[in-house]
Amino acid sequence: MWGLFFKQKKVWVGLLFLITLVTLSIGNTVVNDGEIKRVSFLYDDKGQLMGAPFPPSTEFLLGSDRKGYDLMHLVIEGAKWTIGVGVLITVLRIVLGLIFSIILERTPSKLFKVIEAFFDSFSVVPLTMIAYFVLQHVLVFANGSTPDPFHERVGFEIIILTLFAVPTISFYLTNEIKLLFKNEFVGAARVLGGQKSHIFKKHIAPHLFPIILILFMQQFIQVLFILVHLGVLKVFFGGTIVFFDGDIDSVTHEWTGLLGMYYLSFTTHPWIPLVPIIFFTLTIVSSNLILSGIKKSYEQSKIKPFKKNLYTSNIKRQNKEFSFQPIKMNLSKYR
């Protein structure tokens, strides 16, 4: 599977983009101490003083925001937060989903149906709506006297975004595991005396792995989408979260904060919200490239042995004998 995976160009494009972005971002913190280029005033061609925000130019490759921060620099500094948080939430979702799906696989089918019906609304109602509702309520409480410490708010948000997706993931994985258990080789292993845990480790897990990999990329993309939505709704990671009459600022410079702060002014300064959203899009595109690479190599690895043994050998032999010459037949024995 992996041989074909790394042979595809699109996979390399996606991987290179993500790795460069994260390395640059971490490098900026380590080498540059997280400093961001900032110019509050500039002289234009006629020698007139201009205040921030500056449109994209040679001085600022992607323009600057209203405080004069270089947007290119800001986006790179924020990349590790956004991508890191996305990966963290996705990993938590998958791990929890896998644990629950192994438990759910063993529950009797009637109980399973009831549990599925109980969580059915999760698969229809948008996660953004639920997350916003719950987070906002908690934030209103926290806003009364003193806001909770930074890491607690972030932790809470991560937990919320993880937990609400777990039911859907675990039902999906349960169904996949059930399908895998119906395979003939599982039956053979059972006849030979394999315990359920042995079968799971040796026979189910290798087949489950590519499914989980595909699910991982899909969930990562979904988490990024939700982060964008929450950013627009002014619920940021790491930064100040909705305060009623205070400034909205994102402490960690992560992308959703940039987006949420400036999207209202996008008709006057379109480049400010467009830069983070375009970087979001690029991240999603590269994840999608990797995802389609995984899917392709997974499907190929499934088909391969089947093709070799059954079809090609027969077809080749027939091809050699085929010609447009009229066939000479000895019909005498039929007479």
Binding site: D120, S121, F133, V134, H137, F141
Partner: peptide, 22 residues
């Protein structure tokens, strides 16, 4: 199925009551 789904929705809607602050 329908009734359990509605119970699920009520439990979901009441979630803010679960958190007192954090």
């Amino acid at each position: 199925q329908f009734l359990t789904a509605i119970v699920g929705i009520i439990c979901l809607g009441a979630l803010p009551g679960l958190f007192n602050g954090l």
